[in-house]
């Protein structure tokens, strides 16, 4: 899932300071799961904004809504009518949701209220860690299902660097060295021979290095 973190309130207030009526749009997808952009997050942020603006003597009206997913026209279109009276949209979906709104409603500005972080999963309740960098050419098959692209600071493909110490990464003492994890996993799986193969430099054109990417599923196209 996509993990996002709400922007500091000060920054949000500054970005909407010129408006008297906005639509605050959350998303019922990934950001609901990570507590930052669901129905509850919308209610809480709206409450905070209203309190802050009343204190400034500039009250604001907020239309609250949370489509099932903000990243598809079909779901955001349900709120088209409510949007007519709003001067701007404050979106607390991920960056994809913000852009879907921007593209669908060209005459209304959509302001992001979140910093979209990464693709990951909750390693424990309310704690998310990055697990996939969307590099476009998966290597998990020979790394025992542990990703060195998303989890190694240097994105190394041929074993750990000199900064790996007692299984911990030098970048952050709370982060495991992913190459230590890969070694341990492959040893357990009796697949250490995977590490004897020298991996060639990765072709980053499948990642973000060759501009916008596109996936097409021909048979499902209308």
């Amino acid at each position: 899932m996509i993990v996002a973190d709400r922007k500091p309130l000060e920054e949000i207030l500054d970005s909407i300071k010129d408006y008297k009526k906005i639509m605050l749009m959350g998303c019922g997808g990934c950001v609901t799961i990570c507590f930052s952009g669901g129905v509850k997050a919308v209610e809480l942020l709206a409450s905070q904004i209203k309190i802050a603006r009343k204190k400034q003597g500039k009250p604001i009206e907020i239309i609250e809504c949370t489509p099932e997913r903000q990243c598809e026209f079909e779901f955001i279109d349900a709120f088209k009518k409510d949007l007519e009276s709003a001067e701007a949209v404050l979106s607390i979906a991920c960056g994809v949701g913000v852009q879907t709104m921007s593209e669908r409603h060209e005459d209304t500005i959509t302001i992001p209220g979140q910093n979209t972080k990464f693709m990951g999963y909750p390693v424990e309740h309310a704690l998310w860690e990055e697990r996939c960098a969307g590099c476009g050419n998966c290597v998990l098959e020979w790394t025992g299902g542990i990703c060195p692209i998303a989890r190694c600071a240097k994105k190394l493909l041929n074993g750990p660097c000199g900064g790996s110490s007692n299984g911990v990464c030098e970048v952050d003492k709370d982060t495991d060295c992913v190459w230590q994890l890969i070694y341990d996993r492959l040893k357990k799986l009796n697949k250490l021979e995977n590490l004897m193969v020298v991996r060639q430099p990765k072709d980053w054109r499948t990642s973000t290095d060759a501009g916008q990417r596109r996936v097409k599923f021909e048979e499902a196209m209308l």
Partner: peptide
């Protein structure tokens, strides 16, 4: 009690 109930009181 949820955080929103507490915030609404202040609001």
């Amino acid at each position: 009690v949820d955080a929103i109930h507490l915030m609404k009181a202040f609001e």
